[in-house]
């Protein structure tokens, strides 16, 4: 038996007998999960509540952040769930997906994401990705929100519907303040295909900070007959 054949057999046998060791996507240490328990604790901060209106991480015992309590947050969503605090290694991972052509990294977080949505949201009729502008899609080659939606769709058997079209190539939201974000997105979306009446929709996106994008999409869906809209995002801001 050649050494190559032997090592193939060895690897096959070890796959049967032992659980394969993974490397944590965030800290690169060996782990039994794709994101190790320590990193989940650091970046997902499960002890912190999420604002139900915009998904921001909040330290208080209430259900909403200060902005949403004061009425300047989004109003069109029933609830927004977010996986982690958009900072440090978690932010880097999302940026690697979006700007460094590594959409496949999202596969590593599919279990966490599915569990988050399943545990916190009612069953939907469809999952809708927040669209990016066709020119941006053409350059980048993929829409990260569509991958998030397809992960949820594959794991939970929910259909994906591309109900919305982005008609305005807006400035990146990160460079703008709250008021400018809302103005920037005004009229940026249109309904692309006929919306089924009274549906419950999960709206998927990568990051939410003020919730302005989710709100704009939710309003358009609701105007066109959707009953309830829930947001699912990977990263969110934190209330200081």
């Amino acid at each position: 038996m050649t050494s190559e054949t032997f090592s193939k057999w060895k690897s096959l046998v070890s796959q049967i007998w032992y659980e394969k060791e993974k490397i944590c996507l965030l800290c690169s240490r060996k782990s039994i999960e794709t994101i190790c328990p320590e990193c989940q604790e650091i970046y997902f901060q499960p002890q912190m509540r999420r604002c139900i209106s915009c998904g921001k991480l909040i330290a208080n015992q209430g259900t909403q952040c200060k902005d949403c309590l004061s009425g300047i947050g989004p109003k069109g969503l029933m609830k927004v769930v977010t996986l982690g605090y958009y900072e440090n290694a978690w932010r880097e991972l999302i940026c690697n997906v979006k700007f460094k052509s590594q959409p496949y990294l999202l596969l590593g977080i599919s279990d966490c994401l599915t569990e988050l949505a399943m545990k916190n949201l009612p069953p939907p009729d469809a999952v809708v990705p927040v669209p990016i502008h066709p020119h941006k899609l053409a350059e980048r080659g993929f829409n990260q929100a569509e991958i998030i939606a397809s992960i949820l769709s594959n794991h939970l058997g929910i259909p994906i519907k591309n109900y919305i079209l982005r008609t305005k190539n807006t400035l990146p939201q990160t460079s703008l303040g709250r008021k400018e974000r809302i103005e920037n997105l005004h009229g940026a979306f249109e309904i692309k295909e006929k919306v089924m009446k009274d549906e419950i929709i999960w709206l998927a996106d990568d990051v939410t900070t003020t919730g302005a994008t989710l709100e704009e999409c939710a309003q358009i869906l609701k105007t066109n007959g959707v009953k309830e809209v829930y947001g699912v995002c990977l990263g969110a801001g934190k209330e200081e």
Partner: peptide, 27 residues
């Protein structure tokens, strides 16, 4: 290279030289 599905079908990203800037097959 790491393969993925783009709106143009299969695409790929190089993992080896990304330390000097990421590179994919659409570029």
């Amino acid at each position: 290279c790491q393969e993925w599905i783009s709106v143009y079908g299969y695409a790929a990203t190089c993992q080896e030289c990304r330390s000097i800037g990421p590179l994919n097959s659409l570029q």
